[in-house]
């Protein structure tokens, strides 16, 4: 009842059933919050949401956001409004490998549209869609700061520049073989120039 009186979404443990971050993630989150002056730990929210997303199958459900709010002693709305503002937080389920193709000018002049078409045909999905096996999501994004290596795409922490059809083929093959989720927070990234 108390939560309702405060006018916030109730911290209802039942809706969070099953949400438990790994020990390592919880430690990371705690360390992140200590980077800021006392009482300013809300500053850690953006980095914490990246950790949360990696822990929660690549997307932030309301329940995961509530869990983050509780961990950081914030109101849930403070988490929702941030998660919904920034483009890197997925508010809907996504495939294990989200292929984010840059579509802005420099990449566009060097064939970004062809890259999107090629991946779309190869995986039989359209922009914004996920393959039936849940392996790949195709997305177009705005400038990723790799204009010198255009056209390019990002997948998790990895940057892949100077894309060609052959390069895309081998990339997709590698991701399929690895079969695991690619996250921005990955430590073992393999960029290609």
């Amino acid at each position: 009842m108390a939560e309702v009186i405060q006018g916030t979404r109730a911290f209802n443990p039942s809706t969070r059933a099953g949400i438990q971050f790994s020990e390592e993630a919880l430690k990371t989150i705690e360390a992140l919050m200590k980077r800021y002056p006392e009482g300013k730990h809300k500053s850690a929210l953006l980095p914490v949401l990246h950790v949360a997303q990696a822990e929660a199958d690549g997307w932030l459900s309301p329940e995961v956001m509530d869990y983050v709010a509780e961990l950081m002693k914030l109101q849930p709305i403070e988490v929702y409004e941030v998660a919904s503002f920034y483009s890197m937080y997925n508010l809907k389920p996504v495939g294990k490998c989200v292929l984010e193709v840059c579509r802005t000018s420099s990449c566009w002049t060097r064939g970004a549209e062809d890259v999107v078409d090629y991946i779309g045909k190869k995986l039989n999905i359209r922009e914004g869609e996920t393959t039936a096996d849940g392996m790949f999501t195709l997305k177009t994004v705005e400038c990723l700061g790799a204009c010198g290596g255009a056209p390019m795409l990002q997948c998790g922490a990895e940057y892949h520049e100077n894309l060609t059809e052959a390069k895309i083929d081998s990339l997709i093959e590698r991701y399929r073989a690895e079969g695991r989720r690619k996250c921005y927070t990955d430590l073992d990234y393999q960029n290609t120039k």
Binding site: P47, E78, Y86, S87, Y89, Y184
Partner: peptide, 24 residues
Amino acid sequence: QVGGGAYICGEETALLESLEGKRG
């Protein structure tokens, strides 16, 4: 500190908001 993907956070006051854990 890593951001969350928003061009506007390159504007210095939006950056500060974001650094405080808010919308940019």
